[in-house]
């Protein structure tokens, strides 16, 4: 069984899936060796979802007596969602894309650890033309938000609320509908790349 290096496939994957690094290169061998055929192709700090609480962490509002409520204390990340992506080559023109995210948490939110799995395939109809196709899906990685307890005094009593919307016009109970329960934005991704060399 002969196996061609799939540097172009990796390049395609790197472009389509946003990988940052491309380490290692598969080599041909008589026995399929998973470890040998697996390459770290991407490491990234943070994710699109972790940008959501980060943006909120810069906002603030005031309590009824004017005391500022700085949301940085609730939405500052205590740990960053590190993303690792790998490619395991399964054939001359095919591979399995997989990876994981470590998850992230702040005082009032967390991003669950995630696992990604997918396929990538390459074909070369002509020496100058390379087509690559990839598909990945992400399991886990949900952004979830915790509630706050607000004291509205005589007018509203003590209520469980969405921390961000406690001072809005929404009814306190209504704010709970807007708690983050968000899947990763790139939950399922399809990629197609056409590369023409001349």
């Amino acid at each position: 069984m002969s196996r061609r290096p799939i540097g172009k496939v990796l390049a395609s994957a790197g472009s389509v899936l946003g990988f940052f690094l491309m380490l290692g290169r598969a080599e041909a061998g008589p026995v399929f060796d998973v470890l040998e055929a697996t390459h770290l192709v991407g490491v990234k700090e943070g994710s699109r979802l972790s940008d959501v609480p980060f943006r909120v962490s810069t906002e603030s509002y005031e309590l009824s007596d004017g005391t500022p409520v700085d949301m940085e204390k609730w939405y500052r990340r205590k740990s960053v969602d590190m993303q690792f992506d790998f490619l395991t080559q399964t054939g001359p023109n095919t591979g399995i894309l997989w990876g994981f995210g470590t998850g992230e948490r702040g005082k009032k939110y967390k991003i669950e650890p995630s696992f990604r799995i997918g396929l990538i395939a390459m074909t070369q109809p002509t020496p100058m033309l390379t087509l690559s196709f990839s598909v990945t899906t992400t399991l886990g990685g949900m952004l979830r938000e915790r509630t706050c307890t607000a004291d509205y005094g005589a007018i509203g009593g003590i209520q469980v609320v969405n921390c961000r919307l406690a001072a809005s016009t929404l009814e306190p109970a209504e704010t709970l509908k807007y708690l983050w329960r968000t899947k990763p934005t790139d939950h399922t991704r399809l990629g197609l790349r056409v590369q023409l060399q001349f």
């Binding site: 509002y61 309590l63 009824s64 004017g66 004291d151 609320v161 406690a166 001072a167 016009t169």
Partner: peptide
């Protein structure tokens, strides 16, 4: 109106 809508304490 902003202060009237806001809680007096939150945690």
């Amino acid at each position: 109106i902003a202060r009237a809508l806001a809680p007096r304490a939150i945690q």
